[in-house]
Design a binder for these strands. Structure first.
Lengths: 203, 203
DNA sequence: GACTACAACTGAGCAACGCTCAGTTAGGCT
DNA sequence: AGCCTAACTGAGCGTTGCTCAGTTGTAGTC
């Protein structure tokens, strides 16, 4: 859209670094949504960008660096796009609706980047975890809740449930966004209040 | 243990194909639990096994084939190891306890193979999905439940919650297996009975 | 508008990779 | 002993990730 991936035929070269970097990451975003990393060569990225492989290594000294940058960008894009609408009355529903409707629009990409299983790549797993934590953080904020570790564990589990619902909704296409939002919100009290440990501090 | 990964120094060669295959998969299982595929070379596997790269390609015509075989084996191992104890009174709790305590014993491996995020490798994603479906199937069987699509979606979501709990328990180490089992079981009725769609067939 | 200087860029090339194929040899059979 | 199947190897091809010495576009000065 705003940044063309391929140079115009006779097109300009010698972009400012920031712009080139963005172009390369954009290409990675596009390519890695259909292919795993080990099936994407640096040569292919360079060819699409219309530059030499060497230049790519100036921006990303290692293929892994490129990979991490692309996945980080995907994560940031999700967090930006799934930002809750501050206008909405119910802040919890706002977070949920933002996320579920993001999956509605970009479900295939989301699955490719964050739900396909597998990897055991620590850097990538860290990005994934941090993304999930940010979403949970938003829920905590929306709820004005204490966030001790146990509550965090409950909320992470609940969020995994929400994620599964959002993806199944996208795949099966038989539930509305509102149904998923309402159902998820309805389950939250049970998740937060069902007893988990026997000798709790408070209560 | 039963199958040594490395040949004994002066050791025998020329294994029967089935045994060699098992050895290679075992090596893959071990290596891929710490490293992503694109960081594991066929040369390394061959070297550990004490054979030439060429031989490996007789068993697995493609690195991807090898990868798929290893992941499939990991999946089968999980399903076998997390089999519910038929002795147990409560069949639902049996499934849960089997799974949670499997994670307890092999959490790091499970994370590496099935929870690290990422991939967008269709064959791998298919194995992951099928594994999760099998676990949900066991729950359906344990409950003697109708399994229409909507119930499946609910159960898959609930299972995602259970998975998250089991992994967090493993990572944080502050919950007992029983606490996670009881909590998960306690949440199931709410998951199954909270309204999801407005015009349901029954009720 | 030519000169300079910096930095965006390239091309040739290396080691390691996935993968192939024409062979070699171990080991069970008669 | 000799044979014959098939488990195995080694040399080698194209491609990959990555390096480095060099080239060239372009912004700033005069």
């Amino acid at each position: 859209m705003s940044t063309p991936l391929q140079e115009a035929s006779k097109g300009r070269r010698r972009l400012p670094p920031e712009e080139r970097r963005r172009q390369l990451v954009a290409i990675g975003l596009q390519e890695l949504s259909t292919r795993p990393i080990h099936a994407l060569s640096i040569d292919r990225v360079a060819e699409i960008a219309g530059i030499s492989r060497s230049l790519l290594f100036r921006y990303f000294p290692t293929k892994q660096d490129f990979y991490v940058a692309v996945v980080g960008a995907a994560s940031r894009r999700l967090l930006r796009a799934a930002n809750p609408d501050p206008q909405e009355q119910d802040p919890l529903r706002a977070v949920l609706r933002a996320f579920v409707s993001f999956i509605d629009r970009h479900g295939d990409n989301y699955q490719a980047f964050f739900h396909s299983g597998f990897g055991s790549d620590p850097q990538i797993a860290a990005i994934h975890d941090s993304m999930r934590d940010t979403m949970v953080e938003r829920v905590v904020t929306a709820l004005n809740y204490d966030d001790d570790l146990l509550t965090r564990i409950r909320l992470r589990a609940w969020w995994a449930l929400v994620e599964s619902l959002a993806i199944d909704r996208f795949r099966e296409g038989m539930l509305s966004v509102d149904e998923v939002v309402d159902y998820s919100a309805a389950l939250l009290p049970a998740v937060l209040n069902s007893p988990l440990t026997f000798p709790e501090s408070g209560s």
